[in-house]
Amino acid sequence: MQGDLAERRLTPKEELDLKNKRTGLAIFQVSWIMVFFCLMFVHWQIRIQSPDWPPPGVEKLGVVVPSAMTLALIASSLLARRAYRALRAGQIETFLWNWRMTIALGAAFVLVMAFEWLTVPISGQYSNLFRVLVGFHGVHAVVIGALLVRVYRSAMRGAYHSGSLWPVEGAAGLWYFVTIAWILFYAVLYWT
């Protein structure tokens, strides 16, 4: 259980594979965030065309619960980072605990936002935009969250005790992506 797992000698091919995956993930993050920018642009374009925002008679979205959930998601990402570091240092127990917390906070975020999504008052563009943005982000959160769970189950079976840590690193990288994408949407939905 002790010792830096990352120090395990990689063959040149494994080393290249790992490097490729890291580069690929970075490019994917930069690329796919553009969809979120696109939807932000859509939100901005539609709202500057409306004389009143939110439209008259529509209640502005409450900001307290989503803010708490945003903090939970950020904390979850930070815990994922701590988990990955612990794994690199060979501290499997610390890794598992942090990863569990990552999943728990992520699940809380998804569930609460799903509740918000279902209960938003129907009001034309205002609620449509909310639902499309939160829903689009939610799909990513659920799919990548499922990946976190899968990594956790593999870890419980001992898959990362020695050998490739990439699934953990990759899943964490995608979870950061979910977090950053949410911060963008959070800013436009609740603070503009």
Binding site: M34, V35, F37, V42
Partner: peptide
């Protein structure tokens, strides 16, 4: 950089 806009 551009195709995600098409996706959106």
């Amino acid at each position: 950089m551009a195709t995600p806009f098409l996706a959106g």
